[in-house]
Write a protein that binds this DNA or RNA. Structure first.
Length: 340
DNA sequence: AACGCGTGGAA
DNA sequence: TTTCCAAGCGT
């Protein structure tokens, strides 16, 4: 698809660019719950949840509301136990985020008397808060002038300025942050940052964007928006098999608590050697993706007394009336629901 | 700098 | 079905 070329660059007349973007957002900006508050704690919760996670997931499945009901303030979150914290995060993925959020809450209590700092440096010093999230808290909660560059902003800027350099590489990152800073509306940082992100979400979408109704189309230099942004090649997906055992005894099932690393602290079906389980009946099979793997999860019916039924490190017997309350990854939960 | 970390929605 | 990848961060 060919689109018209820009008549001017955003940096030729930043005020005109800000006005066009701001005018559009004032009229069409969406009403998210985190835009109804200036509480830096609530803003931070939303931003951490939204890291690499779609708005529809966070909002539609109630994660944000539920989290703030259970942990309404910094002190409550700081005191949260792993179990309830993870349970609130179950299904959202990147579970390390939840623990880092709690560690940030602790640090805010200890270092800042319970009040979030309104400065970049102390925010960046908090665990789980990087450059984007710090800028988001500063601009969205405090309405302070701080640029942000996320996937949306990177895509919008790459297209506006027709930059085909890989956006993950160092030099392009530097340029993106500098450009976001130059364009930032210092009179309205909250609205401006919200607007440029939302433009990326609504009009300047990945793939084929909607340039015809774009409020800043006259500033956009690219002729081929679908080709931008350029990203580094990602690692190939690897197919792997995972063989698990459904092991029961009177009113109980054997589950395995994950140790350090992936999905730490969550409960899964016990994984065993394929050679031990493959002779046993296959009860269920489903696929799920995790990081760069495409996993085929097999569930075998394993009688007590079978060598694979011997308890391993982290395994525990759980009541059949109680397993559902545990923190379990979605794939394992679905498999358990299918076979029990 | 490149990789690990989850999940599900959309094309 | 496959592929892409979303309001990133830490190492």
């Amino acid at each position: 698809m060919l689109k018209p070329v820009a008549r001017q660059s955003p940096t030729d007349d930043p005020a005109a660019f800000r006005a066009a973007l701001g005018g559009w957002f004032a009229k069409h900006g969406k009403d998210y719950p985190w835009r109804r508050t200036s509480d830096p704690y609530a803003v931070l919760v939303s931003e951490v949840m939204l890291q690499q996670t779609q708005i529809a997931t966070v909002l539609g499945r109630g994660f944000y509301t539920r989290f703030l009901e259970r942990f309404p303030d910094v002190a409550t979150l700081a005191a949260a136990e792993d179990e309830i914290l993870l349970k609130t995060w179950e299904g959202l993925g990147y579970y390390r985020r939840a623990r880092m959020l709690r560690e940030s809450a602790k640090a805010v209590l200890e270092r800042h008397g319970g009040n979030f700092p309104g400065e970049l440096e102390p925010l960046l010093a908090l665990p789980g808060i990087g450059r984007y999230t710090a800028g988001a808290v500063l601009s969205f909660a405090f309405d302070r002038s701080a640029p942000i560059v996320d996937g949306n902003v990177a895509r919008v800027l790459a297209r506006l300025f027709d930059r085909a350099d890989p956006i993950d590489a160092g030099p392009m990152q530097k340029w993106l942050w500098e450009t976001a800073d130059v364009l930032l509306d210092r009179d309205h940082p909250r609205a401006h940052n919200s607007a440029i992100m939302e433009l990326g979400q609504t009009h300047c979408r990945p793939g084929v964007p909607d340039c015809l109704s774009c409020p800043v189309a006259v500033f956009c230099a690219t002729r081929d928006p679908a080709s931008l942004p350029v990203k580094a090649k990602r690692q190939a997906i690897e197919e792997i098999d995972e063989h698990t055992a459904l092991i029961r005894r009177e009113g109980q099932i054997l589950l395995s608590r994950q140790g350090r690393g992936r999905r730490e602290g969550m409960w899964r079906l016990p994984v065993r050697e394929k050679a031990d389980l493959s002779p046993l009946p296959l009860l269920h099979r489903r696929k799920y993706g995790i990081t760069r793997y495409r996993v085929s999860l097999h569930v075998h019916d394993c009688p007590a007394g079978h060598p694979a039924a011997i308890e391993a490190e982290g395994d525990e017997w759980v009541g059949l009336d109680r397993w559902a309350e545990l923190v379990i990854p979605p794939a394992d939960r679905a498999a358990l629901e299918a076979v029990l």
